[in-house]
Design a protein around this nucleic acid. Structure first.
Length: 275
DNA sequence: ATTTGACCCTGCATGC
DNA sequence: TGCATGCAGGGTCAAA
């Protein structure tokens, strides 16, 4: 579930239950995530207090302060990970792999069937982590615009969709939203990145911002029942124009949407509207 | 240097 | 019903 809007929704949902709270118990049921859970994970966390939860790209950062010093949890949800708030006594389900229990009796519970996600402890504030060091700009920041895309695209022969999904170019443009943004901008996902004009990249950057901002807004509706543990992300209800709609008529021109594979990822687009 | 492809892992839908 | 196949929201790494 975790595209950037879902990670942001997760951050907003868990923050009130963990910020300023002390971790009194840690349970790890499976250490074999994409990055193995460190051996001293539990010992580092017990007795620590959680600071302000932040997000960078699709990573969540939970700063920790204890008598031992300062550290940071770096949490990535991978393809199938989710963080929910449960209560002490709620039994873990299959693939519930990590629990952080606070003094108030809430449990931050990590669920990840495919185990492509991870949680890692870093000394300090975590900003020096190599996984974060080479990330491109946040899509909703001013640093990300058409000029930035155009500059990076010069000389690039790769297709624009995998280009847009490259985390060094911009973070948070996952497979759903890359496809949606390219549709909104009217750009064929197969087009070589280096053969797109500045004006068209201006449109594309705005489309990325629009679609992500709209999805975050809709993800917010999920927050209401976040604690009760029910509910799929609200943004799923949004009207996707192309993602998952191969063979169905284009909402704009009516002709059937086409599915191809780019960079091992399914890519749906309208051959009429996207050039 | 850029770009492509294999791989990490489980669950689900589909078709025989 | 059982089994094989393909596919899934992400990211890393090695090889071409």
């Amino acid at each position: 579930m975790p595209e950037l809007p879902e990670v942001e929704t997760t951050r907003l949902g868990i923050a009130p239950y963990v910020e300023g709270r002390e971790i009194v118990e840690v349970r790890v049921r499976n250490r074999r995530l994409r990055v193995p859970v460190p051996e001293d994970f539990e010992q580092r966390l017990i007795g620590a207090r959680v600071g302000c939860v932040t997000r960078r790209a699709k990573y969540l950062r939970l700063p920790l302060a204890s008598s031992e010093g300062e550290g940071t949890l770096l949490w990535h949800l991978g393809m199938s990970g989710s963080l929910r708030i449960a209560r002490v006594g709620d039994l873990p389900k299959k693939h519930d792999y990590v629990d952080l229990v606070t003094g108030e009796g809430f449990v931050l519970r990590y669920h990840d069937p495919r185990r492509f996600g991870f949680v890692d402890w870093q000394q300090g504030d975590g900003t020096e982590d190599t996984r974060l060091a080479h990330l491109g700009p946040e899509p909703l920041s001013e640093a990300f615009d058409g000029a930035w895309l155009y500059r990076l695209s010069l000389g690039k022969r790769m297709a624009v969709k995998p280009f847009l999904m490259d985390n060094r170019v911009v973070v948070g443009a996952g497979n759903i939203y890359a496809a949606e943004a390219l549709f909104l901008a009217g750009i064929d996902p197969r087009r070589a990145a280096g053969r797109i004009s500045k004006a068209r990249f201006d449109r594309l950057a705005l489309a990325v911002k629009d679609v992500l901002a709209a999805a975050i807004t809709q993800g917010g509706t999920t927050l209401r029942d976040f604690v009760s543990g029910q509910g799929e992300p609200g943004y799923f209800a949004q009207k996707l124009n192309v993602y998952g709609r191969q063979g169905e008529p284009c909402r704009r021109c009516g002709q059937p949407l086409k599915r191809i594979v780019l960079g091992q990822r399914a890519s749906v687009f309208c051959p009429g509207c996207q050039r």
